[in-house]
Amino acid sequence: MTSRVLLISLSALAGCVALALGVGGCGKKSRMIQNKGSDTMINLAQALAEEYRKAAPTVAISVSGGGTGVGIAALQNGTVDIANASREMKAAEKASTKKNTGKDPIEHKIAYDALAVYTHKNNPLAKITKSQLACIYGEQGTCRTWSDVGVEVPGCSGQEIVRASRQNNSGTYAYFREWVLGEGKDFKLGSRDMQGSKDVVDLVANTPCAIGYSGIGYKTDEVKVVCLAVGDTDPCVEPSIAAALSGAYPLSRPLFMITLGEPTGEIAGYLAWVRSDVGQAIVERTGYAPLPPDQRHK
């Protein structure tokens, strides 16, 4: 009796599997638009997907993170519809995408992000230059303590700088490293490599000795944003949406949604909406710099 119940339920389960495999095996594509990549853009992508449901209730969009590298890798394998990237694709990545999928990746600029340098809110450091950042983060950098950059941080015992950084498949990491050190140079070991932009800001907020970098959208009241200068004698610029748009702030970069070939159908509709005034209002609300009016989708 009981074993009959067992057998029936097992065969019912097996039937479900056969069905599932049949459906999956036919290679039927999900009707969901899969959107994956940059952790910097995850909250932006999430907000966009959430709002788009009101604009187009029948289009399902799924958002996942992992980092720009993860998104671009998925694009190369053809397992994602839209990859989020906080940097441009490298030539090699474009080539391998073309080779694997037969389609050219198309980068759609959807916003700008200003990368801010954060310190603990008690840190008196008012201004930081590119060479100071290189001295702190770079492989050849000699700045080990806060006195090396000319300040004394209250509450930081030993004055030793705690460097918050990002894991190496992060677009933010790649962009910041290249801007600070130039092509092909490395950060010195011993930084605290965090999984997400929020983690960096949280670490800096809780660690008086810390310095870190993340998108300006992640600023909280617990951290201080440091005014940034390129040359040692240049005036410094506070990161802001306006400064990112005008180009006055040096550490600003475009954010992309990348598709395989020219987008069509629902994907095209979504990207057009993201680049429209409605989508760009959400970009601004999430803390990123929206596209200037002439770059928007009309």
Binding site: Q34, A60, S62
Partner: peptide, 29 residues
């Protein structure tokens, strides 16, 4: 996925999951 405002319709869809959601809201958002 981190965020899917729809319930899955078939096994080909992505979905949210409790464990993943917990990870996301405590580290990313």
């Amino acid at each position: 996925a981190v965020f899917v405002p729809f319930l899955p319709q078939s096994v080909n869809d992505q979905c949210m999951a409790l464990s993943m959601h917990l990870f996301t809201i405590s580290t990313q958002v």
